[in-house]
Write a protein that binds this DNA or RNA. Structure first.
Lengths: 211, 211
DNA sequence: TAGATTGTTAATCGATTAACAATC
DNA sequence: TAGATTGTTAATCGATTAACAATC
């Protein structure tokens, strides 16, 4: 997907793209063929100018005086997000959260594929979660290569997260999605998204404290 | 907790406070008495200027030439975030994700209390998750009042989320933490934090697509 | 054509970074 | 005192909003 010039895209923009994608899919389900930035904005609580600006940083996807063709725009946004790559994912740490992530159906809808699960507990290794067998974490290097795993999801306790990240990086993973509440050290080239659940909850606490 | 003047605090700042809190607790565990913005920044990958600015918007917590007293700063940041309020929480939707959230130990560490679980499935109602019994969603209004529930966690499928939000608002909840991938309509006064897991994952996909 | 709506440029707003006086 | 480090003001940077020409 082409970007305009060298200009780099803000994270704020990138984080809105999945919202556009989701809303476009819903519109598609409703049988809507054409949608305006106004209507998209109304559905998402985002200003239409913002949406046009976001989309325009990747290309000209709309028709002046008309709007955006839903199918076409959805395809383009999906392509921008790399969802057509059908990334292979592995979950490390099959506790409560890890199991829930392994079962999360929305990932499938987005084209992500769950191809491996890892744990260190002998009582968990060998069990099956969402039709995938839990492997011994000691085999992570071999299995990441064998199954061509691109994304590692870390759902282990904070104390073990850095060790797991090191092993995943060593095995040649492309990106890490980290649920452990810890700032990890990874090589510059490695992409890592931290999903620290206590941030959202604390932010909520902050706001309701002041109401 | 006093704020300086009328100046409102940016969400970016508020979202960093839980990181400071976490790091301060770790420092406390290590027996560190005093910490500088430099050291805090090093541990979190945030510039020391940013940290000083964030903290300074709430008061003068440090000592020039010395640094910040860990215990004192942690107490202050906790107070700012409202963590000493010991909010009562309920999870609605006891599927894979809801169960995982009900079992999430980090919330307890932050002072949040899980006091109720709700579902609509007769096979789930009456079961126990993390020592809390699952109630029939039809009793949500009464139980929210009886148990003085402040925060509702929505972990139901997208199609049911708006309905659940309406019921929670009606019952007098203070804030909603929403895991359903949908933009919900709630009254202006209601605080809502959306934790759409597919955003983080899509963002990761975007970045590794370009490496 | 007239009305609608995009894409883009300019203006504004807000957040981060830099600099440094205050002071422990 | 000298060195260290905060708190705050000013400068920069980046993101959002406004405005409007292009055009379907």
């Amino acid at each position: 997907m082409k970007m305009k010039g060298q200009m780099s895209i803000s994270n704020a923009t990138i984080d809105r793209l999945p919202l556009y994608f989701r809303t476009l899919r819903l519109a598609q389900d409703e049988g809507i063929d054409i949608i305006s930035s106004d209507e998209l904005g109304r559905r998402l609580g985002i200003t239409p100018e913002q949406i046009r600006k976001d989309l325009a940083s990747f290309g000209q996807f709309g028709k002046k005086g008309v709007g955006y063709y839903v199918n076409e725009l959805k395809r383009n946004v999906g392509e921008i997000l790399g969802l057509n790559n059908h990334w292979n994912m592995a979950v490390v740490g099959i506790g409560h959260l890890g199991s829930a992530l392994a079962n999360y159906q929305n990932f499938v809808t987005l084209g992500f594929r769950l191809v491996a699960l890892f744990d260190q507990d002998p009582n968990v290794i060998g069990t099956t979660v969402n039709h995938v067998k839990v492997e011994d974490i000691r085999n992570v290097n071999r299995i990441v290569k064998e199954r061509n795993i691109h994304i590692g999801i870390i759902a282990v306790p904070a104390a073990f997260a850095q060790g797991v990240a090191d092993q995943l990086v060593e095995a040649g993973i492309r990106g890490i999605w980290n649920f452990a509440p810890i700032k990890m050290q990874v090589p510059e080239s490695m992409h890592i998204v931290n999903e620290d659940l206590s941030i959202g909850l604390s932010s909520l606490s902050y706001h309701i404290t002041r109401k």
